[in-house]
Each structure stands twice: as C-alpha cells, then as structure tokens.
Amino acid sequence: MSASDNQQLVVASELHLLKVKTWFSSTAEIYTWGGPSMVYPMADDTFLTLMCAAHLNSYSLIDSAQQVLAFGQFYVRLGRHHLGRLAVNPQCRGQGIAKPLIRQLLAQAPKQQNAQGASLFVFIDNHVALQCYQSLGFKLARYPEAMPGNMQNCHYMILD
C-alpha cells in the first residue's frame, strides 16, 4: 500500500471499523486514540457500538484494492467541524496518508453537518501529528471549557 494508490474517502463499514480496531495492541494505545471508553481487548460488538454513536460520522480512506489506509471521524463540537479518532494504518505510516485523509474529511464535513471552521485535539507529545496539522493550517488555541475525558495532555487546534 502506498500514498500513490488511487485513494477514496468512503463511509466506514463495520468491516472497516473492525480492521481499524486491529491497529491497536494495548489499552494505552486504544485509550489514547479512542477515549476513556476504549479498553483492550474489547469485544467487537462493544467497539462497534462505541464507534457508531449517532453524532459521529465515520470515514475510511481506502485504496483501489479496498484496503483501509486511514480512518477518521467528525462531529460538531463548539460550533466547529471537529475531527477525531484519526488513524493511519500502521503499514502506511510515513507515506503522506494523513494529509489527504484530513483534507477529504474537511471537504465532506460541511455536506453532513452545519458548522464553521474545524478543530481537533492532539496529544502534546505527538510531534508528528502536530506538525502535520500545523502544515494544514491548524493553529493552537485555548479550549474554552474544561478539557474533556482523557484530553488533559492535549493541545486544542482550530482551522478557520
């Protein structure tokens, strides 16, 4: 799999979600990515229930062979299109997949929900992701409320 393969953003299927679940191999990894409800190991049906909450829009970036290259969700948070649970297939990391994923999610979000601008959280020590988001125009911002869930060690970033 490479970034040069024909890529397409599609609504994530249950099979895609279960593939994404295999990208994590510890409670720390899945908790950091998915939030305080995520544990490892986790039953497939529990994972799917958490991933398919009504307010979440879930998308997979796939290649021409239908392989899941990356995954992301968006929903409205504080009036912005908020990106969450962004992940790149471990076999595809370092191949420039995150930027196309984010660009396509940001293009799709206004078609699904009413909001202005975009936002996301990034863990302070995730320098690769921080650099990626900054290169796309996201800027560090003060979160206007108490940091939610497991986000105390995160930066809040916005894109206007």
Rank of each mutant, 00 (worst) to 15 (best):
S2K: 09
S2P: 06
A3K: 12
A3I: 11
S4P: 05
D5E: 15
N6Y: 06
Q8F: 05
Q8C: 09
Q8W: 04
L9N: 00
L9S: 03
L9C: 07
V10D: 05
V11W: 07
A12F: 00
S13K: 04
L15K: 14
H16P: 02
H16L: 04
H16C: 06
L17R: 14
L18F: 05
L18W: 03
K19G: 05
K21Q: 14
K21W: 14
W23Q: 01
W23S: 02
W23E: 00
F24N: 02
A28Y: 11
A28V: 15
A28L: 13
E29S: 10
I30E: 00
I30F: 01
Y31D: 09
T32R: 13
T32L: 09
T32A: 15
W33Q: 04
W33Y: 07
G35N: 01
S37A: 13
S37W: 11
M38R: 00
Y40A: 08
Y40P: 01
P41R: 09
P41H: 12
M42I: 14
A43R: 13
D44E: 12
D44M: 07
D45F: 08
T46Q: 13
F47Q: 03
T49R: 09
T49P: 05
L50N: 08
L50F: 11
M51E: 03
C52S: 13
A53I: 10
H55S: 11
H55Q: 11
N57L: 12
S58M: 06
S60Y: 04
L61P: 00
I62A: 00
D63F: 03
A65D: 15
Q66D: 14
Q66K: 15
Q67D: 08
V68Y: 00
V68I: 12
L69M: 15
G72Q: 01
Q73V: 01
F74T: 00
V76E: 00
L78W: 07
R80M: 05
R80L: 05
H81L: 09
H82K: 01
L83G: 00
L86F: 05
L86I: 11
A87R: 03
P90Q: 06
C92D: 02
R93E: 14
R93M: 12
R93T: 10
G94P: 00
Q95A: 09
I97G: 02
A98I: 02
K99D: 05
K99M: 13
K99F: 07
I102T: 00
R103E: 15
Q104N: 13
L106E: 06
A107G: 10
Q108A: 12
K111S: 07
A115F: 03
G117V: 03
A118D: 01
S119M: 03
S119W: 01
S119F: 03
I124L: 12
D125I: 09
D125G: 10
V128P: 02
L130E: 08
Q131T: 15
Q131N: 13
Q131R: 10
Q131F: 11
C132W: 06
C132V: 15
C132K: 04
C132N: 07
Y133C: 05
Q134E: 15
L136Y: 04
G137R: 03
K139V: 10
L140T: 10
L140H: 14
A141K: 14
Y143N: 06
A146D: 11
A146M: 11
P148K: 15
G149F: 12
M151S: 09
M151L: 13
Q152C: 06
N153C: 07
N153K: 09
N153F: 11
N153G: 08
C154M: 04
Y156E: 03
L159Q: 02
L159C: 04
